[in-house]
């Protein structure tokens, strides 16, 4: 019995062949058209991200040697991360960031959906109402910050104080932007709230931020609402379902995908919220993004600043993972 000599092609050739087939086959144009976007993403996101990660593992500082500026990076491993985790001010910043996120998301989910449901009803002037609601979103963040700075001015002539004083709601002006403890007359509650990151300035800033971002949440949810067929509601009404039951069993499940996207988007934004807080408080309300900026650009410790940034990203990713898991429970 003679065996037929079988020549197997070398492995490298197979890989090359497969790659060639993939790139030249039906996906050729797909890859070609994607290439510019991919290159841009690699250049402006992936490479800087890897560079920042490398910095987070080093004692990074800016030096000028022989008339040329450069970045010196001395490898320290996870030391920046460990120092942060051992620093009480990092944990306070984390609690403040999480408080900012939880309260903002709660407002957006409740009031945002409420506004969207309202805008989805038929009433006179609905279109004008929708346009007016959307205006705050169009205002630049820094302008919004300056605006709320004037509203929350702690002097008598601050817009909010002036109004409340005229209406005799308050006896003397309130310093809305001072991070003072809430309910000082109830020490245990005041201490607990301060520990959780809640103070007067934080809550004032949440109001200013929500005024600007609620419209976009409402508009996105409204878009989701408009995809729900009216027949579902008619059938539910025939079956005698109450308005609350219709909302709970028809509206909410059907807008869940849109809501999840909104929540992920807003979580990312809230975790790195910076402009409004920095414009109004500078370093007085050190949420994580402010801490990252301060470490990098005030103290010149780019390694530590990068480490804080990566921790922010990690926290946001964990939260986003749970959102997605809840949405597609069966798939994950």
């Amino acid at each position: 019995m003679t065996s037929m000599p079988v020549e197997s092609p070398p492995k490298r050739a197979t890989l090359r062949h497969r790659l060639f087939r993939t790139l030249s086959g039906e996906y050729f144009w797909l890859y070609l058209l994607l290439l510019p976007s991919l290159l841009i993403l690699v250049a402006v996101i992936l490479i800087p991200m890897l560079f920042a990660f490398q910095m987070s593992l080093g004692n990074t500082s800016i030096v000028v040697l022989g008339g040329r500026g450069t970045i010196s990076n001395q490898w320290v491993g996870l030391q920046n991360y460990l120092s942060l985790l051992q620093n009480p001010s990092f944990w306070q910043a984390l609690r403040e960031t999480l408080y900012f996120w939880v309260v903002s998301i709660f407002i957006e989910v409740t009031v945002g959906i409420g506004m969207a449901v309202l805008m989805n009803q038929s009433f006179f002037g609905r279109r004008i109402f929708r346009v007016i609601v959307f205006i705050p979103w169009a205002i630049p963040t820094v302008v919004n910050a300056m605006l709320w700075g004037m509203i929350f001015d702690g002097d008598n002539f601050g817009a909010l104080n002036d109004l409340l004083l005229q209406w005799h709601v308050i006896q003397s002006p309130i310093v809305w932007l001072n991070p003072s403890a809430l309910f000082p007359q109830i020490p245990w509650l005041s201490n607990a709230l301060s520990y959780l990151g809640s103070n007067l300035a934080m809550n004032s800033i949440i109001v200013g931020d929500e005024w600007k971002t609620l419209p976009i949440v409402a508009i996105l949810v409204l878009a989701g609402l408009q995809t729900i067929p009216h027949e579902y509601y008619e059938a539910a009404r025939v079956e005698g379902a109450s308005a609350w039951r219709q909302f709970r069993q028809i509206t909410l499940p059907l807008i869940a995908p849109v809501l999840t996207v909104v929540l992920i988007l807003r979580t990312m934004q809230l975790m790195r919220a910076f402009t409004l807080i920095f414009t109004l408080e500078q370093f007085g309300l050190p949420v994580l993004s402010i801490q990252a900026y301060q470490q990098a650009f005030s103290f010149g410790s780019f390694g530590m600043g990068s480490a804080v940034s990566f921790l922010i990203g990690l926290i946001a990713l964990v939260i986003a993972y749970f959102y997605i898991k809840r949405l597609y429970r069966e798939e994950l």
Binding site: D153, G154, D155, F157, V175
Partner: peptide, 21 residues
């Protein structure tokens, strides 16, 4: 001292003085 001092920067404090507050 005005409690607003804790939230005031230099221009804010100057405005309080210039407005007779």
């Amino acid at each position: 001292a005005n409690p607003n001092s804790l939230a005031a920067d230099e221009p804010t404090a100057a405005n309080a003085f210039a407005s007779g507050q």
